[in-house]
């Protein structure tokens, strides 16, 4: 009988583990995760647990990218982490709506956005190179 009660308490503890999971320190990340998330090393420990989990999932997909795409991710990660949730949501919706367009129209919309961005940020415009996005 006592064994049954102890087993019940153990089951309760194990069931609670996902909810009790705590944030992960930078040094606890694997070398591959650290390489993928290198731009966030300085601010990693101050990120919320939710943000950390999100970036760890991004790191998992990082090795599947081409070197050019990996470079872009590194250049943009820090900026992405500083965006507000509303800004990130806007970017996701915009990306989805653009990618639902037929290829010719999609390129035209992207070109318009590229030109608009170049007018607002002339210095950054030279660094932008068109290439096939990751899927």
């Amino acid at each position: 009988m006592r064994l049954t009660y102890s087993a019940t308490l153990l089951a309760v503890f194990l069931l609670s583990l996902p909810a009790l999971a705590s944030a992960q320190a930078w040094i606890e990340l694997s070398p591959k995760q650290q390489q993928a998330l290198a731009p966030l090393s300085g601010e990693w420990n101050s990120l919320s647990e939710k943000q950390q989990k999100h970036f760890i999932r991004i790191a998992k997909r990082y090795p599947q990218l081409t070197p050019l795409q990996q470079q872009r991710v590194h250049e943009r990660l820090a900026k992405w982490s500083k965006l507000t949730p509303a800004q990130r949501q806007l970017a996701r919706e915009k990306y989805k709506s653009i990618n639902q367009l037929p290829p010719e129209k999609r390129e035209a919309v992207k070109q318009t956005l590229r030109e608009r961005h170049a007018r607002k940020h002339p210095a950054a415009a030279s660094a932008v190179q068109p290439a096939t996005p990751a899927k």
């Binding site: 991710v73 943009r76 990130r88 806007l90 961005h117 290439a131």
Partner: peptide, 28 residues
Amino acid sequence: QQLNEHDHSEIDIAILADDLPVDAYVEQ
């Protein structure tokens, strides 16, 4: 919560690796 967050990681890395800069997607 984990399931909901999982959906975002795929699209987020696609945006980060895209040929358009992040600002272009954020600007109104």
